[in-house]
């Protein structure tokens, strides 16, 4: 039986910068019969600074939310759409599962009897189940026929491998498998796990500037017409800074890239026939509606 019930950990992005991810994920989830319920009273996952400030804080912040989920939803897997949330929740889970002493230490920090029994999943994992995949295929009414897409995982989702371990850390392929069901054609490219520099965008802007351009250029060179992501931070960074990358290219006399960036769930939702304003694709910085519509109109089935 495929897993269809999930506890939802929104983090700071799901209702703000990552709204398009949440909207498109829920659109798809509803049609695949997923039941997704938000964890009551959840708190910040501790990304960026928490775990660096103190290891205990790095364990305690995610553990509290996971404990609340366990109290409300039992063993239901916790869904963390943001790669930052995912890695932090998972790290606390891995730490708690190392030994009974570690679990007791963390439980002491949060003052709750957390058992660390439920799994933590990222946005891709619910779609990796073969049963879900066959249901997904049957929901595709407007395939994105031939849309060449570069699947971008970013650096945080697959590493470190003893924490994540849901896919190969150097050459992950789960997003490719999922998106190929929508009629899109994933391309082979080399920068799918390269860092986009998102966490540097405030402090070392000069160093991170070329990072976005490099990723998008590699995708374009591999023949991609679009980039798909599964993380709101990657999305924000790639989508928002494409214009700047294009300005830099213009200085060198190169043409602009015109590479829309999507959440992978937006592409699934589009292949289900979702309207542009209900699946998030109108919310992007880089225009994203046209590419989807063009692909869908080619792939109309009867």
């Amino acid at each position: 039986m495929a897993q269809t019930q999930f506890a939802f950990f929104p983090g700071c992005s799901a209702h703000s910068t990552g709204r398009a991810y949440t909207e498109s994920f829920m659109y798809v989830a509803e049609r695949l019969g997923f039941e997704v319920s938000e964890i009551p009273e959840w708190n910040c996952c501790g990304a960026s600074a928490g775990h660096l400030r103190s290891h205990d804080l790095g364990d305690a912040l995610p553990a509290r939310s996971l404990a609340l989920s366990e109290e409300t939803f039992g063993d239901r897997p916790v869904l963390a759409l943001c790669a930052g949330c995912y890695i932090n929740l998972r790290r606390a889970l891995v730490h708690a599962r190392r030994s009974p002493e570690d679990l007791a230490r963390i439980d002491g920090l949060i003052g709750r009897e957390w058992k660390a029994s439920a799994e933590v999943m990222n946005g891709l994992e619910p779609f990796m189940d073969p049963e879900v995949q066959s249901r997904l295929s049957s929901c595709v009414t407007r395939p994105l026929k031939g849309l060449k897409v570069a699947c971008y995982y970013g650096c945080a989702m697959v590493r470190p491998r003893d924490v994540c371990a849901f896919d190969d850390d150097e050459d992950p392929r789960s997003m490719e498998r999922i998106l190929s069901l929508t009629g899109a054609e994933p391309v082979e490219w080399s920068f799918k796990t390269e860092c986009c520099g998102a966490s540097h965008q405030v402090i070392v802007q000069r160093d991170m500037k070329p990072m976005v351009g490099r990723i998008l250029e590699n995708a374009a060179a591999a023949g991609a017409e679009a980039v798909a992501t599964a993380c709101p931070l990657c999305m924000l960074n790639l989508d928002m800074r494409e214009a700047e990358a294009n300005r830099q290219r213009a200085e060198l006399g190169k043409p602009p890239l015109r590479l829309p960036v999507y959440y992978f769930t937006e592409l699934i939702a589009a292949s289900f026939g979702g309207k542009a304003d209900e699946i998030g694709i109108k919310r992007h910085f880089t225009p994203a509606v046209e590419t989807v519509e063009a692909a869908r109109s080619q792939g109309v089935v009867a």
């Binding site: 190969d168 850390d169 150097e170 050459d171 992950p172 082979e188 080399s190 796990t193």
Partner: peptide
């Protein structure tokens, strides 16, 4: 083992 070396591609 080495996806980042192209895995033989």
């Amino acid at each position: 083992l080495y996806g980042e070396y192209g895995a033989g591609r």
